[in-house]
Amino acid sequence: MTMNTDRPPDGLWSVVRVVSLCLGFMVICQWAAAQVSPTDSLYRQEIDFGQYLLNSQQYDDAALVFAKLDTATVGQLDKSQADSLHFLNGWAYYNLKQLLPSSEQFLQVSGNSTKYHASRFFAAYQLTYKEYYPQAAGVLNDLYLGEDSLLAELRSLQLSGNVLLHRNYKEFEKHANGFTYSYYQLQKEEENLQKAYHQLMKVKRRSPFVAGLLSAVVPGLGKVYAGKPKQGIASFFPIALLGAQAFENIHKRGIKNGFSIFYTGLFSVFYIGNIWGSALSVQIKQQERYHEIDHHILFDLHIPLRNVFGN
């Protein structure tokens, strides 16, 4: 009976129970916090320091810190820690314009990470830039995007640029047919890629043989045909003058005279050299044009990534 009087009333008892449970939980929490492994604290410290370096634009030092952390903690990090590390390391290399090391880091970010999509898209872009077209397309095609229609369209854009750089026009048309032009982040670049496609189609395919033949008839005409009119005119005059001098000397001094031989030889070297040069200039002109268009395509692939992923 005494027990009954000693015992607190039921309401109070339950409060005491709750409080003691809470206290116990807090003790456990503190104990757990004290049990942070040396790897964890090293990781925290180095990630914070690395992010500080990134923020203050000391990218080379940041990359070094992340790379050292990677080797020091190999196999000891949990998935999310490893993801953050790879993403930040990729970001440091990206800012250093070391595109392949950056892609290598980005591609190690796993599907659970919030940075997964950004990592894959940036990796694919950098592979495209480095002309690893099939690999870049593979990265993009393997992406699971769920219901996200913006990212789906971004993927179409990246793939269309990829195949355009690869000169696969049929594939480009397939991707470009899916453009909706409805996202402000992508709209302008979608239009630009269409433009680039038409420009590529219009790049004239001229024959080096015809260029050489034209320059054999009239020195420099082959270069005009190739699309370099100024060079054509500039090479016509010296050759014409050399030819005229050879003619004059042969005509007045006879073909066996030293002057005649000298001028005829000089003329022949320049004349034949110009034919060869005209044939080459066809390809040079074409490559210049392709290079210019490709540069614009890469630019239009890059900008939406910065727009969509907000960096």
Binding site: L242, A244, Q245, F247, E248, N249, F259, Y263
Partner: peptide, 13 residues
């Protein structure tokens, strides 16, 4: 000496 083209192109040019 009468070598007009040679004189013009090699000398003057």
């Amino acid at each position: 000496q009468g070598y007009y083209i040679t004189g013009f192109a090699s000398g003057l040019a």
